[in-house]
Design a protein around this nucleic acid. Sequence first.
DNA 1: CGGATTTGACCAGCGC
DNA 2: GCGCTGGTCAAATCCG
Length: 192
Amino acid sequence: MGCPENPKPNFNFSYTDEGLDPSTIEFQVSDYLMLDDGFAADDSSSQSILSSEHVASGSSAGYSGATSRNNSIKHKNNGVKKNKTEVEQRIAFRTKSDMEIMDDGFKWRKYGKKSVKNSPHPRNYYKCSSSGCSVKKRVEREREDSRYVITAYDGVHNHESPCMFHYSNQMPLMAPNAWTLQPSSLHSSSSS
DNA sequence: CGGATTTGACCAGCGC
DNA sequence: GCGCTGGTCAAATCCG
């Protein structure tokens, strides 16, 4: 393991996908989900969760089980663990990849693995191993199409990537809070 | 030897 | 109230 020389080789394609031959990259983003601060309110939370589920279900909703579970997470975070002032951001990506582990520039420590009911594939749980950073990430393969990996990030890194140096042009940080700023650029990048 | 991973147990929330 | 399920913990194990 260790620090990859390229902090996020797997993510550059998000912005240059149009110009890359897919065969030259190991995988490509098929969808991205954005579950930001919808947790602040019940209505909006179900909205964002619902919409994210809809996106994820684009090809079979391997994430649907987790989605329903997200509701409980919402209550958990909102009512117990997190105040409104401490709303977590959450993003999920569906990527086509043979690998389950994607180097995003951060160092993750696996802390759990769980088989989920709606999926034959286990779900893996990771925490950011940086001290003081409580960002978590869940990784699982899509139920219907195991070529796709669903990666969900919970929270925002309170530090820079240990391997991040010169990628600030478009993405200052490979962190959920950075991504939430860029959803439109994912699509507009082709025209710019 | 230290850090990361594995894995079973435990806990909490939700639906019935 | 009970059972099911997802999420987390922590001891054991593995690996560099």
